[in-house]
Design a protein around this nucleic acid. Structure first.
Length: 505
RNA sequence: CGGGACAUAGCUCAGCCUGGUAGAGCGCUUGCUUUGGGAGCAAGAUGCCGACGGUUCGAAUCCGCCUGUCCCGACCA
């Protein structure tokens, strides 16, 4: 039966269906904001736990900075940073008063406060107090927080007014060291996306017009969604001395000279969950990679006669206890026994729509034969969709089964990415014609739909307008440059730089 | 923030044109029959018809205004 909308039929509606049917998130009564429900938040917790470990392994420490940032901090920055976007939540009053039966804001603040859209400004202010000498550097901090950007067209996980993220902020004594930090965390993002989310990405540098305002260089990881559009999955910025100058982060170097520090910032957000959905979900619903699945194995009891219930539950409990000793990826396994008073078919389809990697249905027949019926989400609808194996075999193969699901998801997505980067488009005419077709679902294992183009770019100043007119973007300048000569796909001028062109979210 | 569409039961929607006290399907509850790939029958519960104001004896229905949602733009650190 599947979802109401399919990927091929109506991709945006399909996306909403997946989020709703998997019980991941919903729109809140607070406009533009989302309620992240247990299954979506559980996935976020997994992403957070995995990356938090990485943050600490790379010597960063978690801190917490204020939600409110004085307006003047942005004023300072605006002088340095041209074109800073203005969609922000502004706090102007400090209390509510009752007037003629209506609540009205009162106590106007002398200086308005901005609800943080990102924390460079307020963190740089702290850095300026913490850093005196080269011995105080580097400062390596991270915070897990919520941020607010007053988006006009919200979409669950992909763009909401409030979202959760981590933002790393560091200060260094030299540009080289700061640049190394920027690249190190970019690599950490690539690793997170590919090895944890099973979402292959392209890594590279943003062109000038796509950079974070105030950054010297912005690096990014870009993923391909199943409709051929690109999703920026994470960014890492080398900020040079720009923010150090506006916040006055200075230190005395070994030669007893005062110098501005070099800073970086890097972040990934709940948007990653949107990326995971559009990378792995299918027309039956969500598919969660085992490494981030809140439950990797769900047991569904099939109870036909009430008198069998105790025997079935006892048998499941035994198997679950054995399964708890299994360590997929060398980590503690996550198991759920679905004891709710609902029909087993309903439970099966609910967990299927949620994308739980493995569902085990266990009834009296299995108890008697000491078997387990194993259903892998990625094999739904195929002849291997349900396998009856002995309890022993189930336990013995569980770790490899989970491991192979993770690998399968990555390989499938990797193949899709590789098959849908066109490299044979060499002229502006071909290029224009290609992007005139609309994006649709890239069917698994097939190519030919509109997706990415890898080709030449001259870097001309009028590129931004040309791109805008075609509704495409330059996603990144990949690190692996060919160095060959060719023709700019936008202007027709001679060019050597390779870039990735695509439509994007 | 511009252009368009929409707002009725938990969900998807009909009713509105032509004003007269609220409908369907799914879901939910109960019972019986079923059950290993999305069950069947029967009975039941569920609504300030998005908010405010107007026209009218009477408004889900007509008019105004607001708010929200979706689509298309602009924006998107």
């Amino acid at each position: 039966m599947g979802l109401k909308n399919t990927r091929a039929g109506n991709y945006p509606e399909w996306y909403q269906n997946v989020v709703n049917e998997a019980d991941m998130a919903e729109n809140s009564s607070s406009p533009g904001c989302m309620v992240i429900k247990h299954w979506g938040y559980g996935i976020w917790e997994r992403i957070r736990d995995v990356f938090d470990e990485k943050i600490k392994e790379t010597d960063h420490e978690n801190c917490y900075f204020p939600l409110f940032i004085p307006l003047s901090f942005f004023q300072k920055e605006a002088e340095h940073v041209d074109g800073f976007a203005k969609e922000m939540a502004v706090v102007t009053h400090s209390r509510l008063a009752m007037k003629d039966g209506k609540l009205v804001p009162e106590g106007k603040l002398e200086e308005p406060l901005i609800v943080r859209p990102t924390s460079e400004a307020i963190i740089a202010d702290s850095f300026s107090k913490w850093v005196k000498s080269y011995r105080d550097l580097p400062v390596l901090v991270n915070q897990w927080a919520n941020v607010v950007r007053w988006e006009m067209r919200p979409r669950l996980f992909l763009r909401t007014r409030e979202f959760l993220w981590q933002e790393g902020h560091t200060a260094h004594a030299s540009a080289t060291e700061a640049e190394e930090e920027t690249k190190r965390m970019l690599e950490a993002y690539r690793d997170l996306c590919e090895n944890t989310l099973a979402m292959p990405v392209l890594v590279g540098r943003k062109p000038e017009h796509e950079k974070f305002p105030g950054a010297v260089d912005t690096y990014c990881v870009e993923a391909m969604m199943q409709d051929g559009k690109a999703l920026q999955a994470g960014t890492s910025h080398f900020l040079g001395q720009n923010f150090a100058k506006s916040a006055n982060i200075t230190f005395v170097n070994k030669n007893n000279e005062s110098e501005y520090a070099y800073t970086t910032s890097w972040g990934v957000s709940t948007r990653l969950i949107g990326g995971v959905i559009m990378t792995h979900a299918d027309d039956e619903g969500m598919v969660v990679p085992p490494k981030i699945a809140p439950y990797q194995v769900v047991f569904v009891p099939v109870i036909k006669k009430p008198e069998d219930a105790d025997a079935i539950m006892a048998y499941i409990s035994n198997i679950a206890n054995e399964a708890k000793k299994v360590m997929p990826f060398g980590e503690k396994i996550r198991i759920k026994i679905d004891k709710r008073d609902k029909s087993s078919v309903d439970k099966f389809w609910e967990w299927t729509r949620k994308g739980a990697p493995i569902i085990c249905e266990i009834g009296m027949r299995d108890v008697e034969a000491q078997n387990v019926m194993v259903k892998e989400r990625i094999k739904l609808g195929t002849p291997e969709g349900k396998q009856i194996v002995s309890a022993k075999e189930f336990i013995d193969t569980l770790a490899t089964r989970i491991d192979s699901i993770q690998k399968h998801l990555f390989n499938k997505a990797k193949e899709r990415l590789e098959q849908n980067i066109r490299t044979d488009i060499k002229t502006p005419e071909e290029f224009k014609k290609y992007f005139e077709s609309s994006n649709v679902w890239i069917e698994d294992g097939k190519q030919g739909k509109v997706a990415f183009v890898r080709g030449k770019w001259s870097g001309d100043a009028n590129s931004e307008e040309l791109l805008k007119a075609m509704k495409i973007t330059i996603r990144c300048i990949p690190f692996d440059q060919s160095g060959t000569e060719g023709v700019c796909l936008l202007t027709g001028k001679p060019a050597t730089m390779d870039v990735i062109y695509a439509r994007s979210y």
